[in-house]
Amino acid sequence: MSRLLEVDGLDVHYGAVKAVDGLSFGVDRGRTLGLVGESGCGKSTTGYAILQLVRPSAGRVLFDGADLCRLDTASLRRLRRKLQIIFQDAHASLNPRLPVGDLVGEALDIHGLFPGAARAGRIRELLDLVGLAGHLIERYPHELSGGQAQRVAICRALAVEPELIVCDEPVSALDVSIQAQIVNLLQDLQQRLGLAYIFISHDLSVVRHMSDEVAVMYLGKIVELAGKERIYAAPAHPYTRSLLSAVPVPDPDLEAKRQRIILKGDLPDPAHPPSGCRFRTRCPIAIERCAAGDPPPQPLAAGHWAKCIRLSEGS
């Protein structure tokens, strides 16, 4: 399997706030990397930085071998076709003054795809692909339901024939039943078109459902990364463990038996993160040595690592 995207040492710093700090990960063609974490962990900023919608302070983003951070404007604009994004608030991501046909058509126009007579037919084809009825072509965003708006956004992203789509909380604002429709759509599209996804979400249940690999972020850093089955079955980092234990399961019997690891306190101020391991102020197993320095990644199995010094104690 070939690496489509390789992120290496990615930093996004706003003054003292290290929103994203030294991220490294990769995504294979046709696969999904889930990026989970709570609000303020920098997962959305990571998505934006990959697409160069915010400029990274340091690091490399290699797409098909080309470093997006170092491309000139024109080359980057051409490459944007290959990397697309959909947002949490689908309605806000659609210009309220344009009808659906123009919203999708514009994506074609920007890259000179299907010009002239072929344009209208292609738009119809694309709407069909995401399961939208053709008559919606004349509708404006405010006339669409949440699910329909997200389908239009997906449709627009697909219009430029991308290889990777960053999905930034794409179903978080939707009702459960509609959420399932969109999740299924994204999975179908991946199968049919061989898309790779970076699936950003705070919802660990949806991420489990969507992803092949999962990276867990806390205060700008990835604390653990592993294949899906592995990370949900054998989470290693204390943060991942507490996160997973906190997610409710829709089964009263299981819920009654579950042991929650309740974390102390709140997220620290991102402008003044704790020294050493950033999680140590809330960590149930923190020791003095955790304050000493940034913990290095501990390899635990093939493709599984976690940044916690207590994992090497042979417990």
Binding site: V176, S177, Q179, A180, V183, L204, S205, V206, R208, H209, Y232, L244, V247, V249, P250, D251, L254
Partner: peptide, 12 residues
């Protein structure tokens, strides 16, 4: 329908 729409963290 609601239950069938809900993804589960325990993978069940």
């Amino acid at each position: 329908g609601l239950m069938g729409s809900t993804p589960r963290v325990d993978g069940a």
